[in-house]
Design a protein around this nucleic acid. Structure first.
Length: 272
DNA sequence: CAGATATGACAAC
DNA sequence: TTGTCCTATCTGG
């Protein structure tokens, strides 16, 4: 779940259900007890997302502050209306207002930051396709200057913030470029196309709440193949489809390893 | 029920 | 590059 679209969606969702309300925070698991204590009685005044980082701004209470959450690989958030249910599993943080509740499990980061620390966090993040203040030109310059493979560069959060393995994999398929190609072999036009596609895809992802990258016009007409639900919830061309036929040309999707992370591509549709 | 797996990131060799 | 963090879910026996 947790690529940038999920985090932006959570920021909006949390403001919708908890914004402007006084919060009672607890840490049923215990690992964020001190932080929950500080948030209790505070009002959630704003939420925002930078890449894969979620921020809640709290005023008042026992100190308030800025809550920083990074879901990492396993983190999840659930929420609901009315009184919260008995905690199930390892709930790091539970936020409760008069009308709603939200539970956080398994985050890589759950901490309170000062404004200066938030500035530092922003400073080490690159262009976020889901933010209006993104600077794609700087990101493009870094990529087109690098010898590292595109499959690695697109995952570098200091270059592009919020893109994860699924979006990086799929946007390169849609661009017809192998993830092994060095960044410096990318033309300015190709970067523009990739950036624009990331903006489109991630906006759709934030709206739908899942990653869906397959375009009807790409599919072989004759098959009439129904959408294939993948574990991450949407439909994709090559992500985690190792050994299966490419949806466009029928060639076998291959799996590689770039900088200790998997990469998937079609060697026919995506020449190096 | 044990084991493998996962959309991430960082430290340590 | 490898190991570690952290949790839920899915797989096979």
């Amino acid at each position: 779940m947790p690529e940038g679209h999920t985090i932006h969606r959570l920021a909006a969702r949390h403001y919708a259900i908890l914004g402007g309300a006084q919060i009672v925070a607890t840490s049923p698991q215990g690992r964020f007890a001190a932080g929950a204590q500080r948030l209790t009685g505070a009002t959630l005044t704003a939420t925002e997302a930078y890449g894969k980082h979620l921020l809640h701004h709290y005023d008042g209470g026992n100190g308030g502050g800025i809550l920083h959450v990074h879901l990492g690989l396993y983190g999840t958030v659930t929420d609901g209306a009315g009184a919260p249910p008995a905690p199930v599993g390892q709930v790091r943080l539970r936020l409760v207002s008069r009308r709603h509740w939200a539970d956080l499990r398994g985050p890589a980061a759950c901490e309170l930051l000062t404004p200066a620390e938030v500035d530092a966090l922003r400073g080490r993040l690159g262009a976020d396709p889901l933010r209006d203040d993104a600077d794609p030109d700087t990101a493009g310059a870094k990529i087109r200057r690098s010898a590292r493979p595109l499959g690695v560069l697109l995952l570098d959060q200091s270059i592009v913030a919020g893109v994860g393995l699924v979006y990086a994999t799929e946007v390169l398929f849609r661009a017809g470029i192998a993830p092994t190609r060095p960044g410096r072999r990318l033309t300015a036009d190709q970067w523009q196309a990739i950036w624009g596609d990331l903006v489109d895809l991630m906006r759709i992802g934030a709206q739908l709440g899942r990653i869906d990258t397959v375009r009807e016009e790409h599919l072989p007409e004759a098959t009439g193949r129904p959408p294939r639900a993948d574990r991450h919830g949407g439909e994709v061309y090559v992500y985690r489809r190792t050994g299966s036929p490419c949806l466009c040309c029928g060639d076998t999707v291959v799996l590689g390893a770039l900088a200790a992370r998997n990469s998937y591509w079609c060697q026919t549709c995506q020449p190096s």
